[in-house]
Design a protein around this nucleic acid. Sequence first.
DNA 1: CCTGGAAATTGGCCTGACCACTTGACCGAT
DNA 2: ATCGGTCAAGTGGTCAGGCCAATTTCCAGG
Lengths: 233, 233
Amino acid sequence: MPIQAVEPRRLYRQIADQIRALIAESEFTPGSRLPPERDLARQLRVSRPSVREALIALEVEGLLDVRVGSGIYVTRPGERRGVKALEGASGPFEVIRARWMIESECAALAAKNATAAQLRAIRKAHADLVSESRRDHNPLDADRAFHISIAEASGNSALVLVVQTLGDQRVGPLYRALERKLEYPMMAAETVREHRAVLAAIAQRDPRAARSAMRTHMNMTRKRYTKEFGTER
Amino acid sequence: MPIQAVEPRRLYRQIADQIRALIAESEFTPGSRLPPERDLARQLRVSRPSVREALIALEVEGLLDVRVGSGIYVTRPGERRGVKALEGASGPFEVIRARWMIESECAALAAKNATAAQLRAIRKAHADLVSESRRDHNPLDADRAFHISIAEASGNSALVLVVQTLGDQRVGPLYRALERKLEYPMMAAETVREHRAVLAAIAQRDPRAARSAMRTHMNMTRKRYTKEFGTER
DNA sequence: CCTGGAAATTGGCCTGACCACTTGACCGAT
DNA sequence: ATCGGTCAAGTGGTCAGGCCAATTTCCAGG
């Protein structure tokens, strides 16, 4: 057992962790406003600059949105832009092509490797997505969760990370412009059918069908983008 | 032309941007120490807390390492851990399997799509890697740069992001333990041969050979890991 | 009802102070 | 020569208090 380096916990990290935990426990829900800096400092028994440092860290992580004179707001999951997403955002067509390649292999691996619990999680994510699709807005969060549940069933956490990273690209400016043009819920019905085919192939433990179904879904998504956006980019 | 939202530039972001630019211009090189906070504040004509806020942001981004009592250091590219890499680090074998899948397709795409300039960049990255391999330490940075140059030649920026993200996983604790056990420069000679085969296939514009060469490289890398680390994880 | 102004609240940034930690130099004991 | 202890200087960490800019809310007047 090698001697471990001892790393003192800087106060701003402790504060940031605590706020992060409160958000995760839904004490502060997405879209809601945190108490003012002065109040947080008082409640946490620390100085206000220390609170500010923690807030900066959480802002850089994309978890919070700090508005001068107004307050500190928890971002909605779809709005969260981590560091990576701030660097040159990838175009929608690039993302969908990368997803075609990667998520089809994830689906094939999921068909091979999914545990019963993971299959249940995929089914639940799918049901949530169907339910969300009945509304008139883009079910971005539920869609993302469905795809991530499949990546998780692949059994490779590096692939989960990759799928999450690609999913994060969907909040870039090009993507927003594109997705604003899409029609709901007509498109939703097609998407639901494609998702159902992916789920069915995974449930039947058929890697080839799962790969093919996910590729079909990505191809159809690309076609939908092309139809609305004209030339690819 | 819609009216654009005006977003005032918070001072900490301006300072962080300036420091980031100075690092990019090699004014501050990886491993080097920045001037003390008090000096930075004086030079930039801002207060020290404002400098601290900027440093927090850059620390969260992984660009800087702040050591109490010692100073502020620029991280080496291989040490940079963005937000994503802090979440549950993936194991080396998971990463290598994901890279097998993804980077082989990148190599095939690079063989198809690389511009002359990109091919030159791959060649340069390879030459740098060969040169670095002659030393007795793991040429992590140069290796990473070589692989990223191939992803860039794929012509899909989403794939570049994915390869970067997977590359970032190589600084996790499991990875460090594993790579400490590897022998240099004996292993370096094998790796150089494998890299050369990838480069040759790309230069010959042969996607199948490029895909195959990269898969071989990843397979051999996994074998090297297995040999040193025993059971896979 | 709408507009403008005032007041209250919120975040932004600053100054100054003190504390904890690190580093390097120096000295004495073994 | 080596090791441990002490000290001083420098570094980052955190705090208290202050003032300014931006936002929100409320109220009065047209």
